[in-house]
Amino acid sequence: MNATKTSDPLAESSATPCVFRLRRVTLNGKASHGLPVHEVQLTAAAGSLTLIQHERSHRTREFASLLQGLVRPTSGEVLFDEQTWTDSDYSRHFQMRSRIGRVFDGPAWIQNANMMENVTLASRHHGSDSKEARSRMRDWIQRFDIADVSRERPAFVEPALLQIYQWIRALIHRPALLILERPMQLVSTRMLPKLIDATNDLRRDGGCVLWMTNTPIDTLNADVRIQVQGRQWIYIDGGQCDE
């Protein structure tokens, strides 16, 4: 949880294993304003940060679901930890997803549960002790210096706070891949350094971060920067794919 960098994850990323890989992926999704995905090639290694800057009108939910194997690509292949989502071994798919943290673009809460249950649900389901999960959640609340609304239901929590709790939910189980869909959408910019610190910590521990945003973030130390304009993916920094 230290904010200062001890090593440069960027330098290490070339030698580290690939976390996710898109091989000539095309997605003709249902969403009319979804992020256009046409013959996309993308590889992200452990410890790396990939920044996708898209247009304001683009919605990323379907693309993020594609990375998690919840949506099937029209063509191409999506790999997580060198494993595909195409077979019917659903228990393995659920195990793979348990290693992915995600901040959704839009509301993403179980309305019938309070914030504590919501945030710790996945950790507890995948074998973490309830007490330990709760204490980790409190640590994150302190780290982000936000109000403790653990006992409230999502309907009674303001949207900006809900989004920060989405960060906590995504980070709490130290995921191998962290997908951030416009994580600063509703949050004050003064929280940005704290989120960047948290993602840097995760990267140092071997996690890979995919950050999608429609506003430029100059302070991010991204390994790969991609700009999506119209249907085109323009690679500003970093290679397109190693194959």
């Binding site: 679901s65 919840l70 659903y90 793979m96 290693r99 995600r102 993403a108 809460w109 389901h125």
Partner: peptide
């Protein structure tokens, strides 16, 4: 979808 995305069947 949120449950599914967190690896919860």
């Amino acid at each position: 979808e949120v449950l599914d995305a967190q690896g919860i069947d």
